[in-house]
Amino acid sequence: GDNLRSYKVLHAGSLKSATVNCSQPKAVSSSSGGVTVPLHHRHGPCSPVPSTEAPTLEEMLRRDQFRAAYITRKYSGVMGGAGDVEQSDVTVPTTLGTSLGTLEYLITVGIGSPAMTQTMLIDTGSDVSWVQCKPCSQCHTQADSLFDPSSSSTYSAFPCSSSACTQLRQSQQGNGCSSGSQCQYIVKYGDGSSGTGTYSSDKLTLGSSSVSYFQFGCSQSESGNLLEDQTDGLMGLGGGAQSLATQTAGTLGKAFSYCLPPTPDSSGFLTLGAATSGFAKTQMLRSSAPAYYGVLLEAIRVGGRQLNIPASVFSAKSIMDSGTIITRLPPTAYSALSAAFKAGMKQYPPAQPMGIFDTCFNFSGQSPINIPSVALVFSGGVVVDLATDGIILDSCLAFAANSDDSS
């Protein structure tokens, strides 16, 4: 009985993508109320804009380092550290392509009247939503038709004197006025890429529901390979004033939820205005970095046993992020996790480290694979038992360490 509770079975076949027939729409539902839209993996076969060449896992992990470093830097900055006003110790190679490369989940929305279908990445780590607009002088190619403001009867650009534009400037995302006194925005990401255009509003269609006066950036120029695939834009779900979640809070409710599909060939959902019952809840911690949603991780359990990690190691809090791929832990916590996990994996030979992963195994010829359970314990005694997909990625423990306990 103890063994059954403390181990999980990982089938070797689950480490590889299966052939899937995407012509069969998969049932998408939320366990709660609100407006629900399907959510797909960006690079999966069921993506509305499937990648012609998906990045390798190694490349994704490399990009993930920049995402994590950017969040840490930005958070540290607003909390009194140097933040992104100081030279970063992360030098971004010019071949990186995009700091948005770690975003993996897409929703399809309609913008305008009549609604024009647009495929958008979701991101809980930023607030300003944007979509490529016609005319776009420096934009990437996209699968859907370019959103054309002139074809929408409900589109309007915010004047510079509007409160929305003032608020945008206060959040450091204003970018002056156009010659026609239209409010200009700028979004910047971790690799120095950016997008600019006109801050606007239009009708947003989500499934069978619609939101009037949705505020977003009408992107007219991008630099630094903002996106490298066929997606049309980004939907910010952060905690700041401009995010979709904040904008719909008054009409749909001050909550949203998502279900991230476990594999690229399966679907999940995003629900805005979610009912909040039936969840194990921990306190949400906010800071002066409004986009970020914080939680307090208190302990880690491996194989049902709590690791001996001083609570102070976790005192700097953790950010819940849909756009970071791999969970980052303070080194002291990661070392304890890695050691305990290895102890429970003695039957499998170690394998070479891969990128940011240093706890890897050789599963050749073995199936099924028994792995120790891993649970995260958050404040209030909330225990989140991770699925096998959240413990092992490829053949490695899917966690990484920060550079030091104080970072």
């Binding site: 409710g253 909550a255 979610a274 969840f279 949603y293 976790f314 950010i319 970071t324 995260l376 959240g390």
Partner: peptide, 30 residues
Amino acid sequence: LGIIGNVQQRTIEVLYDVGGGAVGFKAGAC
């Protein structure tokens, strides 16, 4: 600062209850 990444969130419905000041988890919901 730690970051809870999306690999660890897979198969869990994650709730951002901004009004209620809570983050919720529903395991096996996906």
